[in-house]
Design a protein around this nucleic acid. Structure first.
Lengths: 253, 253
DNA sequence: ATAAACCTTTACGTGGCGTAAAGGTCAAGT
DNA sequence: ACTTGACCTTTACGCCACGTAAAGGTTTAT
């Protein structure tokens, strides 16, 4: 199947201008130009555009996307990990901002004045982040040795489906953790619901559930920082709270 | 306390250029200009800048921010509480984005082992392998080899189940397509149910759903014969009907 | 034959600044 | 008193990822 600009635009949801611009900057060239000078795109270009839009969704710049999709020696995984790190920083910056907002509300309501330099704590994080972006580029240039099989586009979509289905249960667990953690009571109703859900989740991968093993895993959650960060990343203090909730649930506390 | 451009810039973390630009567009005028033409800012401007940066963080345009902060009939505390809510939403959006990136990394890292017909199996192996790599040693030490092997087996089955669940959803889609197609009305109740189900099915594999992309895919169903045959093989005229139903559902028709 | 709906290139506009360039001001050290 | 260097000023062009318009050519349907 072949597509003109408008056809591909409708197919993909982007504008015609965008496609011409992508051609102009060499990000997505049409398969050929017909006798009237029209851009004609083929299957390969449809796939490539999909890939481009995927990375665009993730907030990559077009230049970096071009490197990712055109350079076979580009380390896509490293790029994504880098991006993930940037997202994490953005998130912790948001957390600090929220704290500042809370403080400001408190000071407005309570009349206590905030120090001038305190007012901008959240915004300063962004500055640090931006600097790291600059230097990070140099570091990123050093990656890019592994050869990635370029024919994995469709596969990636398929795998995403599975991963999503698999993490759904875990998603629910995190939602419960957030809710229960907000109560602050590891013996409360929500916390016990959380522990119960955690047990269900566990039983998917553990053939034989036992309270001992469950409590043991809870201990590992606070003892091993890989687990701690895993939960704390999503819910602040989540690992400790989950630990406490499980200990109550299993009758150890 | 009074501040020159550089002082306020350092205090707030924005650049001097930004402050001059904000002056230029009338968003943040200095308290006064001294005899040498220097911009001098006071306390009030510090507060105003802080407010401006809050809204900027939330993604508001400077013009809209100007309207918000210069309107005297504005409840600051209420606005800040709104800020906080918006920040929470932004954070959860970031979380979703991070999850998508994580999923992509996971599927890419398994890339080498995944080939055509074995793609899915290869992914399962990779997951099990990762699980072992990450936590295998500790768990083995604590719970013994038998437990681990059984757990791996369970995980294998789980992925198999999920794959089946996905296939089941597609099966339901075909049943709905048959029923809706029989009515002949792509705007009818059944057709809209069909489009909704199709969206659900789609969202398994698309990290970000949009009406545009959905409508675009519908166009592809009738434009690309691989898709047309795929649906027509099961329900005669199914591709065209599904296309029409989706266009109605997404408001394109 | 004509109109509508495409297609093309060229070119300027947008936001939110970054980054010179060219020059004026101020405080400190010599 | 003079120089240095860190500040300040305005003017102006550059950047991304396109949107929008102008001026014209091509295709398709009636």
């Amino acid at each position: 199947m072949e597509y003109t600009v408008k056809k591909l635009a409708q197919l993909s949801g982007v504008s015609g201008r965008t496609l011409r611009y992508y051609d102009q900057i060499g990000l997505l060239k049409p398969a050929r130009i017909n006798t009237s000078g029209y851009r004609i795109y083929g299957e390969k270009e449809v796939d490539l555009l999909q890939q481009i839009l995927f990375y665009r969704e993730l907030g990559f710049g077009l230049e970096e996307i071009s490197r990712i999709v055109h350079d076979p020696s580009f380390d896509q995984v490293a790029a994504l990990k880098n991006h993930h790190k940037a997202l994490e920083e953005k998130r912790s910056r948001l957390d600090k901002l929220m704290t500042t907002v809370e403080k400001t509300i408190a000071s407005l309501e309570g009349g206590a004045a905030m120090q001038d330099n305190e007012k901008f704590d959240g915004f300063k994080e962004k500055l640090i982040h931006d600097n790291e972006q600059k230097y990070g580029k140099e570091i990123r240039d050093k990656y890019g040795d592994d050869t990635i099989d370029a024919s994995n586009k469709k596969l990636r979509n398929m795998l995403q489906e599975d991963f999503q289905a698999m993490t759904k249960l875990e998603e629910e667990l995190f939602e419960l953790l957030d809710k229960a953690n907000a109560t602050g009571d590891p013996a409360g109703k929500e916390a016990q619901e959380l522990a119960e859900k955690h047990k269900q989740w566990l039983m998917y991968s553990w053939p034989t559930y036992s309270k001992e093993a469950h409590a043991g895993l809870a201990e590992m959650y606070v003892a091993d920082e890989r687990f701690t960060t895993y939960y704390d990343k999503r819910v602040k203090g989540g690992a400790k709270f989950l630990h406490d909730a499980i200990l109550h649930y299993t009758g150890r506390m």
